[in-house]
């Protein structure tokens, strides 16, 4: 009874003195932490803009309004002609996810359709393309590389309008081109391009890409791991603190230490009957989960990083795509 009283008292004290300030503290922490984490984009705005017909999302502000409107009309025209949506993304956000995931997340916001994306990540100085639906087939890794070859110089020289124009027109053109469609995503340059530097880790063959993003990708996985979640950690800490105080309070008045071992007469006690009889067995079997099935939820877009040469991936929303990227 007295222990109960103590516990009730403890609980009351806890609520009065700790819970309220704690919630306050946590809120402050989250505001502070939140300002650091900052999500890449406000998803609802993008969806609204997309529904209003926008295809050019120039977050980095590379284009003037007239240039953007020109590209919008171009994208619409060539898109309708090719039967896909041609989308341009740019940003200069230090806290945005890595390019492949950025596009995947964007795609997951939108209704399923045939789309090709071109992302210019100014912060990283990388360009990345992904093709969904029809575009996955028609705009595959090799063709993505070819588009990159065409736009690279313009981007470097700041001719953004020209670069995006080329991308839109060339993408649309590939949809008409039925050759090379059995392309197996194992594209390798027959002969390395002139400026290919095997020692440069930013040269975009798959292996290097993998190398470059390995740490980033792991961090991404960790972010999604519950063990690294701020709230989870706070909860764990509170639990540990509570347990410590609880144990201290409980043991402050002394605990029972005498048990059976103190009174058992070992000389006269023991097991006097013991039988273990096997009766029967049952066996059940399940099929081994196949190794290429997705684990469900979380980050799945590992396809683009396979060092085996396959380029492409699957978004969190389950959309598979072709892909390719390059460091500018």
């Amino acid at each position: 009874m007295t222990m109960n009283k103590l516990l009730i008292k403890l609980a009351k004290t806890f609520i009065l003195y700790f819970a309220a300030p704690l919630i306050l503290l946590s809120a402050v922490y989250c505001i502070v932490a939140g300002s650091f984490t900052g999500t890449a984009y406000a998803s609802t705005d993008y969806v609204t803009d997309y529904e209003n017909g926008r295809r050019i999302f120039d977050e980095a502000g590379l284009l003037t309004d007239t240039e953007r409107e020109y590209l919008e009309s171009l994208s619409k025209k060539y898109g309708e002609q090719a039967g896909i949506e041609i989308i341009v993304l740019t940003h200069n956000d230090a806290h945005a996810v890595y390019p492949e995931k950025y596009i995947e997340d964007f795609e997951d916001l939108l209704p399923v359709d045939d789309r090709v994306y071109f992302l210019y990540d100014l912060y990283r100085g990388e360009i990345f393309m992904e093709g969904y639906g029809l575009a996955e087939t028609y705009i595959h890794s090799k063709r993505i590389d070819e588009i990159f070859d065409s736009v690279e110089d313009d981007l470097r020289n700041g001719n953004y309008l020209e670069a995006f124009k080329t991308y839109i027109i060339q993408s649309a053109a590939y949809l008409e081109d039925d050759t090379e469609l059995n392309y197996d995503h194992n594209y390798k340059y027959d002969t390395p391009p002139a400026d290919f530097d095997a020692d440069n880790k930013y040269t975009y063959d798959d292996y290097d890409y993998n190398y470059h993003y390995k740490s980033y990708y792991k961090a991404e996985q960790k972010k999604n791991n519950i063990l690294f979640n701020v709230w989870f950690q706070l909860l764990i800490s509170l639990f540990i603190g509570g347990s410590v105080v609880g144990v201290l309070a409980y043991s402050s008045g002394g605990v029972m230490t005498a048990g059976a071992r103190d009174y058992l007469d070992r000389s006269k006690s023991g097991l006097i009957g013991c039988k273990d009889q096997y009766t029967h067995s049952t066996v059940s079997k399940v099929r081994k989960p196949s190794s290429n099935s997705s684990s469900g939820g979380g980050v799945k877009s590992s396809g683009g990083f396979n060092s085996g040469g396959f380029r492409g991936g699957v978004s969190s929303g389950g959309r598979s795509h072709s892909s390719g990227g390059r460091k500018l």
Binding site: L264, D265, G270, L271, I272, G273, C274, T279, H280, T282
Partner: peptide
Amino acid sequence: TRYYNVYRKVDLDY
């Protein structure tokens, strides 16, 4: 799963 019938008897002095 293997099933067993287990029997134990103890005689203890405290």
